[in-house]
Design a binder for these strands. Sequence first.
DNA 1: TCCTGTAGTGTTAAGCTTAACATCAAACGG
DNA 2: CCGTTTGATGTTAAGCTTAACACTACAGGA
Lengths: 345, 345
Amino acid sequence: MATEKGDFLKGKANLIKVAEHAGVSAMTVSRVINQPSKVADATRQRVEAALDALGYVPNLAANTLRRKRSGVIVAMVPTIDNSVFSDTIQGISDALETAGYQLLLGCTSYSLEKEEKLTRAFLGRRPDGVILTGSLHTDVTRNLLSNAGIPVVEMWDIAEGHIDMAVGFDNFQAGYDIATYMLGRGYKNIGYVAGTEDHEAHENRAAKRSAGIYAAFEDACLPPPVRKNVDDPLNIECCGAKAADLVASHKEIDALICANEIIGVGAIKALQLGGLVVPDDVSVAGIGDASIAGLIHPGLTTIRILGNRIGQRSAEVILECLKDGSAAKHQEDIGFHLVVRGSTK
Amino acid sequence: MATEKGDFLKGKANLIKVAEHAGVSAMTVSRVINQPSKVADATRQRVEAALDALGYVPNLAANTLRRKRSGVIVAMVPTIDNSVFSDTIQGISDALETAGYQLLLGCTSYSLEKEEKLTRAFLGRRPDGVILTGSLHTDVTRNLLSNAGIPVVEMWDIAEGHIDMAVGFDNFQAGYDIATYMLGRGYKNIGYVAGTEDHEAHENRAAKRSAGIYAAFEDACLPPPVRKNVDDPLNIECCGAKAADLVASHKEIDALICANEIIGVGAIKALQLGGLVVPDDVSVAGIGDASIAGLIHPGLTTIRILGNRIGQRSAEVILECLKDGSAAKHQEDIGFHLVVRGSTK
DNA sequence: TCCTGTAGTGTTAAGCTTAACATCAAACGG
DNA sequence: CCGTTTGATGTTAAGCTTAACACTACAGGA
């Protein structure tokens, strides 16, 4: 099958071919597609027949180039195989689809350098908006996005000094609230299991949660909880083992606060394996509410973060900007819920 | 800040501006970016300085238009908030990123019509390849993709009559294997819990699993298992309730096969709530191995499908086609593993 | 009848990049 | 020293679409 001259979607037509087929100008075909009301009925029907006959598929690269808008929104998350962020992506995807926008997705793997690289590459696509995760980025990333002249939403973390807009929750408050709840339940010796906190994006949010937890202890006039760090806060077995270590080495511990739900679930499993009863011997609480938190037995008492809603609102905020051209710096706190299950008493 | 003339990434430069700044032609700048070895060292350094000074970000819309390739790969999945497909997307994303391609992601919500709509919209972006889920599509979708002149991979399901290439596993075999395993363990009265199967994409794969299960019973000269349908095979509580119903109404049942891991986990939870002991009173097996399957107690005996690997290989197959220009119809069976946990004895 | 407005359609050029070809100077071989 | 190759750079046009403007024909008002 010879590759005919024409759009490079092989064998397919461009506006000009359709126009010839229908006996009109290319502009009229363009109008049939974009502003059908401006074309006479008879002409429109003829053009529609031609579009159909030739199987025309518009070339959005040319469209983007000419119109100076792409209909693409970029989203960058640390990882997708984590149910937390996949919920968020689903929320974004649904909101964008409704509005006819397309989603260009990138994974930063919790690396700011990778985020910078992706940002550079994605901006070349001239997206109409960018959604990224967290509030910690390289200077170059911030610069690129600030100068791009498009709406930018940083999601998941509400903080000072955002690039443009933000949708998320207060990580400090989440830590503060779960710690306050646990202290209120009367536990006397609370341990804390968290990831090691360096300056990478993910850990930044984790550090704020930790700060909130410590603040709650301080406000209660108590010394900070005994802490154990885990290297890989997303690996259940590894996290659980560390939690069990902590309890083994500090027999007085009657409750654990875990910096995320992975650690929390891992801790429950590991403690049970070690012959302890949750919550009778040791209670466990976490932050984050992936489905596993509710499915294990006992269920994990935790802070439910509304990942899907964060994604949905992030996308909507971008879309509102694009519609209104509004320059109002939007910052939205989605909040969170305390979910009490059987892992605490 | 006045919007200067230039690329529509506001205030930013295009090749021509960079060229002026460096005192060369636009073509030389293009070469510095795409084929640096063809430019004299001194010139290159001057151009690189100009690129840096003006913060040039290439316009990939123009690039795509001219080069007839976009560097974009489209992927369509039924849903992302399910850990099964998020693993797959992660695999795709990682493979593409390594090769410098970008991922345009769409959600079909298990609707063939939505898939068709998305296909049409995405092809306008002139992707270099398309990955979609399952082997059931509307005729229009199949036509659009066949005529697009780009590599197409249907993933998750190996079947006859693929559009182009396929990467996945044999759903019939998965059903056959889990049923054979259960029959081999000596269970006498096995119940089967599955979603209602209509002609939607997802249910097509489910139907093949069912067929495999029935075939195993037939090969063992046994009547088909008692079956209970669930309306929403992705809702844990709903699935669990139906499974418990089945067991309650058929006291003789000593084991359940569940069409997916959601149903399996839901069944275990619901049976336990009803006072039954798994696996002593009733054993449970599923198909699919999301993390919850291993975290609940007892763990779910199931078929592990390598979602991440399916995604990774799907992307790699596309990339190989793009490199070689190979037209070999590739079909790849990723296989699956039987994972035996505590929910069966 | 003439003017004005408007609906419908066409023409031109621009948006940014790169393939293909053209040019020029220096290096090279004899 | 000349013809030729090679390396470095420039020029032109094309890729497809649409904004902006131009044009035509006809309707309606004075």
